[in-house]
Design a protein around this nucleic acid. Sequence first.
RNA 1: GCGAAAGUGGCGAAACUGGUAUACGCGCUGGAUUUAGGUUCCAGUGCCGCAAGGUGUGCGGGUUCGACUCCCGCCUUUCGCACCA
Length: 863
Amino acid sequence: MNKYNPQSVEAKWQRIWEQEKSFLATEDPSREKFYLLVMFPYPSGRIHMGHVRNYAIGDVIARHQRLLGRNVLQPMGWDAFGMPAENAAIAQKSHPKTWTHSNINTMRQELKSMGLAYDWNREFATCDPEYAQWEQVLFLKLYERGLVYRKQSLVNWDPVDQTVLANEQVIDGKGWRSGAAVQRKELSQWFLKITHYADELLQSIPTLTGWPETVRTMQTNWIGKSHGVEFSFAIQGSHDILSVYTTRPDTIMGVTFCSIAPEHPLAKQLALANPKAAAFILECQQTGTSEETLERMEKKGFNTGWMAIHPFTGADLPIFIANFVLMSYGTGAVMAVPAHDQRDFEFARAHGLKIRVVIQPHGVTLDPATMTEAYTGPGILTRSGLFDGLDNETAKQRIAERFAAEKIGRVTTQYRLRDWGISRQRYWGNPIPFIHCDGCGVVPVPVEDLPVKLPEDILDLLGLPGNPLARHPDWRNTACPRCGQPAQRETDTMDTFMESSWYFLRYCSPDCHTAPLDRQRVNHWMPVDQYVGGVEHAVLHLLYARFFHKALRDIGEVNCDEPFTRLLTQGMVRKDTHRCPTHGWRYPYETREGDGILLCSECDFPIEIGRNEKMSKSKHNVVDPNDIIRGYGADTARIFMLFAAPPEQDLEWSDTGVDGAWRFLNRVWRFVHLVVARTSGKVPVCSPAHDEILRGLKTKIHETIDKVSRDMVKFQFNTAIAAVMELVNAGTAYMNQATPEILVEEAASIMRELAEVTVVLLNPMAPHMTEELWTETLGNSTRLSQWVWPVVDPVALIKDEITIVVQVNGKLRARIQVPTNASAATCETLALADPNIQGHLTGKTILKMVTIPGRLINIVVKS
RNA sequence: GCGAAAGUGGCGAAACUGGUAUACGCGCUGGAUUUAGGUUCCAGUGCCGCAAGGUGUGCGGGUUCGACUCCCGCCUUUCGCACCA
């Protein structure tokens, strides 16, 4: 028997699949299509274990669907624009394009060594001039549609990356990539009107039934729809009015003051005349997005001296500039109800303002003098004139109606979602195709002039402060397409999330050179049936892509409403960490064994074994996939990752677990070879005893097919593999106890079936080895990758006898064998006759018997 | 603070709709094979106990003939959001 050699077997099959074009996808109306997509990688250098897990999961699903007869499309490409390339270019003094393409070449080879069933003919990188060109075309189409606009706005400025960030890219007041504290800056920026789709993006979330609940909730919260009333206060002695938005119109009679944002026009107006106000506003802006935001910031305010007039009572309400009011939400001004809003409560306490209770909870009397926090729950209206006695939910409607009737307010809806700012002041991105002309203003580049290409000679300008494109000596100089006068190109490039918002569409017709998309082919493959990727994209990429898709639908590029029917978010790969008190994180090879404890190999200090953390170079706990693939083969790496944990869960890396996967594959290899060696030319001799064991094995084969088939559609690859292991163990046990003489003809056929089923069921997970066993060992002339998933034989599942459990007072006391079709009465008789059970019944009275057919009998007794 | 998910052997994890808790793998113990190491094969392995038996799914209650599973109250961990009026 030849030994399993993953290196040669894997290279061989990868070559054959490539030669035979096994995984190229073509549109075929006669077969059901299945579009499987795994989030494409950023070409950062080399693949890491997270990639391996990600692509292994996707590939199992794709290969399983192929075996089920679907016409599967599984493409791969590169999310190639972005800042790391630019930073690497600065460090290495080479062009970002060179760095990117070199990484792509490395990573492509690495992915190919995993044996992934990709249609490599569809590969592209988003920095390819053609992809960039079609993206510019789509961008201009969205512009024509009114979904693109430019405005002067306060932006999130990342001082390290020297660029603007979208709201979604600011995490805890810090840049998502650089981690630097984000500053506020006013700039002219390009925006995509994602808010135009806010309602549809929200409304269709319930239709995404194949998405994880967590992602749906996150998107719902991100869009943040709320219902309320917008109305205006008149201002004492002024023609100005103060417009506010509230979700609590029921507390209108509890308003004792008003607060406005530091950026509010009225605040700015006051700052012109009042230096103290100006100083306060400046103070707010400096601390606005800094780290202090993380702490519970003190409620600071500045009394403007102005008075708003209560619309119903005419009472005077002081207006404050307050540091906690956001200009970007609602109208940038709020009515303050300290009794029923915690922020207003704290502010009122700090500034000695009146607290007026207007909602009375059931059973308790709120006293403003003794309250320690605002009451925000439900209750009955009080001190609210003709609304007294209403419950607050009813009051919300009545008061809203009254606002409308008196024409001082209207019912409105607010979203937390802001428009998507896509301007980036970096070189390595797709240029925004616009031209600034002194005479004509901002003019789109005519489609026939596209693409706007990045200049090649940029190296000396990278790394200088600001936008390299703006510093380029002549790139931005051009003629206005409208008047022909000298004009300037837009130097901003697009956020790289633009590229990932439609790459899945381009995969459907990557060779279309006359338009962004070949609509017929796009509509054939779309929507993506199964999308696989990390949860970290739950709002960013997945929300942008949904929006972009809907916008493209409205300009006629695609038909379907949602791009991704089902979404699988896989967990991270983690590993334990080693830390030295003086040298910090250590790789295992940077430690040594001494007196039973681990020591730092540099300073001999004892190593602290940390808990599992996401694999990262900085924590010195990464494992290079190439080492694993070279040493054990891709099949072992795949089996380990699929077996160690279900896909959604974090996976804990374990070297001994990899050994386990390797041993399992070798066990399969030896088992199949043994079966083949011992099942050729057998003499038919039948023994009844054997007959029964063989029937059991036949049942086991089909139970396994059943179990694995059900697990695969639920993506429970770990239990699917466990079921195959059980089958192989049963087969091995039989082979070990059966001498060659008694391996009768019937046994030969069942063992062969067992071996073949094992190989097919394992194929999606371990494609190379199973393909080799299928043709070379089992002698099939077909390709396993073109074969069919096995079908359960219902007859094989039928058993003559089953084991049922007998409990006494819920405790397991015996197991009895009964005929499958035995009646409840027969089972009970057999149970009572069991000597063990009788022992537990002596001296006791049977109260009742609970019988679950085919499962158990519980005898309830009393002593 | 709010929201969500999760807590099961020494470890990774199983358990269908309330019905044998710990499948499968790792590790460990013993044995066989091997010159040896490794490999492979066999047996064992939740805890207490010689055994019968008892006990056991984060903690405390409850429902039920029967609870990892359902209900109530806590604790812990992870993730997401965090002044959104």
